[in-house]
Structure formats: structure tokens, C-alpha cells
Design a protein around this nucleic acid. Structure first.
Lengths: 246, 246
DNA sequence: CGACATCTTGATTACACTCAATTGTGGTGG
DNA sequence: CCACCACAATTGAGTGTAATCAAGATGTCG
């Protein structure tokens, strides 16, 4: 198994700081001066790893921090009033979790590790204070929230207009692209989430997810062995997806 | 026609400032001191009304401002790469438009007036500067973006899990609630958007929208005459909706 | 090894889509 | 003023995609 695709086996030094983190180029610190990165670094709290199925935060919990995912993978889940669960997002290293809690001062989602993961906790009041002093950081955080908005709009479009095949292909492409941006393989990776999570996220049943993946496999678009995906024909996959949800 | 439901006939003085605006309690200035409201007011540009079908901004345009809707109604639309349109939101007075443009420095949506509307343009660089000086404003703007995120997550859940009847009922309830928050009638209002816009937004065809509305009418849940809606049985509507998308 | 969860595959059903026809509405010009 | 047209909305009939129901295969963990 090539190292480059084994993100779930990639253990970082818990003491690494932002300036040294290999994710700095895609994470919160983008476009900050080294001095400001160090200021940011000072307020970040790095806990021990969260294990698979552990919560990073619970829905309903009061909002204190946002979290940068350093390794592993996380899903966010919202529980509707009638007890159904809705998966609202999948997050990969370098991405920020928890911004849903800002509006009402408590989290509206739960964040659950899909595999052993490490997170950098960023206390929000301190981030606010620092943002007021560092214009680039304020701008960067506005941008991250805006990116979350546009990402969700793409998902809305996908759910509103596209078939099961298109939805699943788009998700595969999204993971591929995000892996590529993190310097990993765009063509080969492990899906960190279950079929059930995929179906829940994309508004499909688990049976449909399974059928579509089998179909893509039979058509030679992908190779699939459990959670191990190889994109054999990227152009064909893009043709089916027709929409990207990076 | 009662005044209180005729929001499309409500013409404001273009010179009104934030401190006097009757929407101040639900708009950007919430929780600001009067001095800070006046500072905010100084950077706001109030243009002449936009007419129905006019754009507030175009997709692709470089991002310079966000806009507070003062009167009327606006839809935001994203055009997918293959030319399809996706309605991404409906906005009523007191709500903020344009935050999608922050991530990439140009707008990813177009904002189009559904009826004659007035907007307050807020140049973003000046809002950023002011936010760095006024912590409550920074917090308030973060909250507005977060609210946009949670709102879209509710829509995602709706599209992912709910039937046509549930989607349409939820939209009616959302408009009802938002009207109520603005001091207007929760039980009687005019839909500012076409059946086609509703269908596009909710991932349904125009025929399905029409059928569901007719059905709700026959069941005595609502009274419907073109765009004029009376919610006759609010509890029944809530029962069908089972989800709110305020 | 057994118990349980996850995933795959098949047969049938249902909800919303498509296609089609009709009515209703608003705007324009003779 | 009304005839005409384009567009919006309603209603009906038939179809198709994904859901549901069901069974079996595979994988995981104590």
C-alpha cells in the first residue's frame, strides 16, 4: 500500500506548530506573515488524537472553538427534530470544522471522527481578538466561511438537480481533488466513510450507493475494493459527474 | 388588501439611515451601540430601487460589497457549468445578500429582484476595517455568515430526506416565520417568487409544485389565489412540514 | 467460531418526472 | 376597447428512477 494514499496511517507529531505544518498552505494560516502565524500558533490547543467514532464536539454544546483537522477524517452530522440524522459534511486534513456554531453560540452539528484523527483547537474569542489585530487573518476567516457557503450551495445544486450516478461521481471527484490539493494521489485513495454515510450525505439509500459504485466499477470508470478506490478513467468520471463539489 | 401584507407596496424613504430603519432589529446593526450604528451608516450606500428582474449583482462580477435588503424580495441564482440555473436562496427585507463572493473575490451567484426592491450597499473593505474596530460588528458579521451556513444545511436536509409535500410546506412556513419576525402577518402574505423559482429552489418540477399547492388548498391547510397565500391551519402545515428552514 | 454490522444483489413498488393539453394572466398594438 | 400573443400555472396520463422489501454475502470483533 503506497504511503501517499494512506492518510489514515499518517501520524503527526502532536507538538508540530503551524509554521512547520505541511498543511499550512491550505489551512487557516494562508497569506499570513510568519510573525502572525506564530501569534495564531500561540492560541491553538493541540489535544491528543480522537479515535474513530469519537466526537470532536457534540451538537448542542456551547460554541467555544473552531477546529482545524490535522490528520484523519471527520464527518459532521445534524440530528433533525424527529431523530433522523443528516450528514452535513466530510472533512479532510487542512479543513476547518465548527463554524456552524457561531450563529447561535452552540453547535448545531456533531463532529465525529471517521478514523483516528488529530485536530487543532482554536478558541474562538481569541481568534476574534487576533483577527481584529491581523487584517489578513480576519479576511482569511471570512473567506473560509464563505467557502463553506459556496460549497454547500454546490451540494444543494447536486441534490436538487442530479441523478444518483452524478451525485456519487461528484463526491468521488471532490475527494480526489481535495487529496490532490493536499499533495496526495488524486487517482487512488481510501474512502474514510461508510456507504451509509455516503448515502445519507447525498440523499440516497445505501442500496443505491452500492449499486452505483458497482456500476461504475463494471463500466471501468473506477476500481473498487471495499473502501479502496482507484479512479481508472478520470475523464469518464468527470463526464458522469458533470458537477464538481470540491 | 391589508397594508401589513403588502410588502411589495412598501416604499421607504431612500434617505433613511440605520438608526431610524424599522429593520434595524433584525438586520446587520443588531447589538451595536448607537455610535457604532452611525459609523456603519456612514459607509452604507443607498442607491435607487432595483426593478423586478434587475440584477443587484451578477455572477462573475468582482466582489466589492454585500447588500442589505431594505424592501422587496430577491432571489440568488447560480448557473452551473452546463447552463442550468439553480436558485440558491430567497431573501426578504432585513437579510444580507452577497456573502458568497467573499471566498474567491467574485460573486458565484447572481442576485435578481423578484419585485421592486431597495438595497443598502455595504462596501466590504470598509466593513472589514470597521469590524476590526468594533468587535460587536465583527461578531455580528461572523454570525450572519454562520447563519447562512446553518440555513443551507437545513435546506440540504430538506432536499436529502423530505418529500415534495414536506419541502413546499417548509418553504411556506419559512416565509411565514420570517414575515412574522419583521412584524408582518405570519398567516397571510404574497409569494414574491414564481412556481418555477419555487420548484428550482426545492428540487421539484413546476408541475409538482402546482400539484402540491393545489392539494394543500383542497385539504384546507392553506387558501391560495395565485400568489396570495393564507395559512388556514398552521398546525396542519407544521405537521406536513415537520422541518423548519427559517 | 459465532454474533453482529456492513455491503451487495434482486424483485417490486411508489413518488415525482416527462410529455401533453388546457386554462389563466399580463402586456401590446390595431 | 378588445383581439392577439407570450408566458405562467393547472391538470391529466403514462413512464422511469430510486425507494422499499427481502435475502444472502462478506467482514469485523469479542
Amino acid at each position: 500500500m503506497p504511503q501517499s494514499i494512506a492518510n489514515h496511517q499518517c501520524h503527526h507529531n502532536p507538538q508540530v506548530n503551524c509554521a512547520d505544518c505541511r498543511l499550512a498552505s491550505i489551512c487557516l494560516p494562508i497569506s499570513l506573515h510568519i510573525d502572525d502565524i506564530n501569534k495564531l500558533d500561540d492560541i491553538i490547543q493541540r489535544g491528543r488524537p480522537v479515535q474513530k467514532t469519537d466526537h470532536v464536539y457534540h451538537a448542542g454544546e456551547s460554541f467555544r472553538s473552531v477546529y482545524a483537522l490535522r490528520s484523519g477524517a471527520v464527518k459532521t452530522v445534524k440530528v433533525t427534530h424527529d431523530g433522523q440524522e443528516q450528514v452535513t459534511g466530510f472533512y479532510l486534513p487542512g479543513e476547518i470544522i465548527g463554524m456552524d456554531g457561531l450563529a447561535s453560540n452552540h453547535h448545531t452539528n456533531s463532529a465525529i471522527a471517521l478514523e483516528t484523527s488529530a485536530v487543532c483547537e482554536i478558541p474562538f474569542t481569541r481568534l476574534e481578538e487576533l483577527s481584529a489585530q491581523v487584517p489578513n487573518l480576519q479576511r482569511r476567516f471570512f473567506q473560509l466561511m464563505s467557502k463553506e457557503i459556496t460549497h454547500e450551495q454546490q451540494l444543494i445544486t447536486l441534490l436538487s438537480k442530479n441523478s444518483a450516478d452524478e451525485r456519487i461521481s461528484s463526491l468521488l471527484l471532490s475527494i480526489s481533488t481535495r487529496n490532490h490539493n493536499r499533495g496526495l494521489s488524486a487517482k487512488e485513495f481510501y474512502l474514510p466513510m461508510s456507504r451509509s454515510d455516503i448515502g445519507n450525505y447525498l440523499g440516497l439509500t445505501i442500496e443505491t450507493v452500492s449499486r452505483v459504485l458497482s456500476r461504475l466499477h463494471k463500466q471501468g470508470v473506477i476500481t473498487l475494493d471495499k473502501k479502496h478506490v482507484i479512479i481508472s478513467d478520470l475523464d469518464a468520471l468527470k463526464g458522469v459527474a458533470s458537477v464538481s463539489i470540491d
